[in-house]
Design a protein around this nucleic acid. Sequence first.
DNA 1: AATGAATGAGAGTTCATTCAT
DNA 2: TATGAATGAACTCTCATTCAT
Lengths: 193, 193, 193, 193
Amino acid sequence: MPKQKVDESFIILQSLKLFRKQSYYHTSMSDIASACGLQKGSLYHYFPSKEALMKKVIITVHQYFKDTVFFHAYDKKKSPTKRLELLFESAEKIFMDDETGSLMGNVGVETALMIPEFADLVKQFFTDFFHAVKTIYLDKYSEEIANELAERSVAEIEGSLMFARVFNDHSFLKNSIKRILSRTETKAKSTLK
Amino acid sequence: MPKQKVDESFIILQSLKLFRKQSYYHTSMSDIASACGLQKGSLYHYFPSKEALMKKVIITVHQYFKDTVFFHAYDKKKSPTKRLELLFESAEKIFMDDETGSLMGNVGVETALMIPEFADLVKQFFTDFFHAVKTIYLDKYSEEIANELAERSVAEIEGSLMFARVFNDHSFLKNSIKRILSRTETKAKSTLK
Amino acid sequence: MPKQKVDESFIILQSLKLFRKQSYYHTSMSDIASACGLQKGSLYHYFPSKEALMKKVIITVHQYFKDTVFFHAYDKKKSPTKRLELLFESAEKIFMDDETGSLMGNVGVETALMIPEFADLVKQFFTDFFHAVKTIYLDKYSEEIANELAERSVAEIEGSLMFARVFNDHSFLKNSIKRILSRTETKAKSTLK
Amino acid sequence: MPKQKVDESFIILQSLKLFRKQSYYHTSMSDIASACGLQKGSLYHYFPSKEALMKKVIITVHQYFKDTVFFHAYDKKKSPTKRLELLFESAEKIFMDDETGSLMGNVGVETALMIPEFADLVKQFFTDFFHAVKTIYLDKYSEEIANELAERSVAEIEGSLMFARVFNDHSFLKNSIKRILSRTETKAKSTLK
DNA sequence: AATGAATGAGAGTTCATTCAT
DNA sequence: TATGAATGAACTCTCATTCAT
């Protein structure tokens, strides 16, 4: 194990893991402290409240998606098909990963429904997700169709993510992504013809 | 308003409303008692624990979907298209409804992830949902395609439901259902040809 | 010891004692619970918060003063001198008493300065105190003089109370009251002549 | 603003302001550190504990009153009346001043009641205050009367100070001082005649 | 002298649950 | 069946204090 530097980002990472595994409301500041090798009170040197910590977690995940997933959509050097593939495949990788994965898919939504400030952050995440996917589709389709396809894809991904967790079976998400990618190819072909 | 008989099913209904509005963890036994015009302690004459109550709520919702939504899938007197339409439109009605709506979409999943016994019940619900949708598709498609279409539809519905709540905008769900229905028609046409 | 019925007024009384002995901020809900033979959490069946409890304590003391002290001022059957005597002597008795005594003199003010809602209640207490004393003086003096005498007397009482506590010497208060009463006699004589 | 040297007396001054504004118990070491432009830990280079700091604050205020207020009483070159006037008017100025004012009137007493070592310091302050006032009265009155007049005056001042703060109205103190001074004149006149 | 991370005890509060009445 | 007082464990958060750097 690498030496654990306890700093803000380390705490955020540990919190993220716990929130994902146990949900926000089942993760106590005590749990987080333990995971960081700290005392409860020490956390408050870094974050003024549990809520503030959660916000940073959401923002961190959002940023991580921007840098690792969404950016593919805007890489104009690659073909739309390739971009879509890279985007969803990188998303899949993160969602499957136990560490950072699907915070947004479940915890985010769960908390967003209760705490308005979380809702804003979660909305921003999904809005960015939509926008990235739509941007790719816009290369081939009209505004309207691109919009619909994006909405559909992202919704399906999120629904699958939910099933993946409830059924504890990753293939829901895998199949979903496979479908989205293949569907596009077909559609692309038929439309471009 | 007729005088409300306080019995098991009345408590289940009140709990359902609260769980849906506030989530399971933000709804205290006290809240439920108040909503039922009872004292906290009295609830324990009907249910041995909050968890047991929640299980009954899930089972009740499941049964309600069976009777009101899923049964359309098995009504062989109607065309597949009609059955699909009836199924999703009745689902939409329930999801939109503030009372019983999307317990499964959010609360169910949130809790399912924390309490294994809830997970089983939620799985059964989604399994039935899949099965119903798949049954309709089987009238026209192969096992494999029907399976895929069902998975896709239900996932999309659930994802849309999530967005509808997070963005506080019902049109996500409406559009989703519209898409699923129209997509089928198209597909049906082209495949049946 | 009489059997202790734990009810709202019993808790208020125990809290009053502790607040007076230890100040509001040095009295924890745990302390109060112990004094009542309860668990910390049980207190919240009676009062929604420590602040709410303190408010009831202040109100209770205020009411006690109304019934036991201030009312003398309005007993028109007695002479002004007698009324003043009864008023201050009954006040002295309460202030000396370890149980209910000088909550207003110290704790009240201390907290009033920090919590606006307490300030209002404490103001009302002192306003009533002023009014009672002034009413007596009005029997013999003009509005202006009565006002001044009342302000002076109550201020002196409160200051003496403070000294009595700091120096742990009741005679400050005793002397103060003696002075006020004798002063009036003198003044009365000279003015009435 | 000149660059502030952070030294013991600077910290004492900042603490004084905060204790007065927020009370001793509502002022954290953190608050004090911030007000001094320091980190919490750094305070402990100057004072071994919060209590020790408070003691120095009380002593400082006491010394300040000696130099600025009480000394008037012993200035034999001026008339008793003039000395009394100077004493109370300088006291009023300090009490009204937001910076150093009435620490003794409220914070001092509040804490004195809880921490015996504070009580001693506060007693010494009031003893000096008494002594100064009494010294002036002794020029004209017997030991006994001087004592009584001093006790009365100081008590009335402290009581008025309390009201001034609770009612947030400086005129209580102003009137009180006016009364004490005019009363003396009258009394002086009548007695000296 | 100054920092700032860390402590650890304790604060007020919530809540599912129990049980005598 | 219904009550409501009581529990006790858990929660988030505060804070004076310590100490290696």
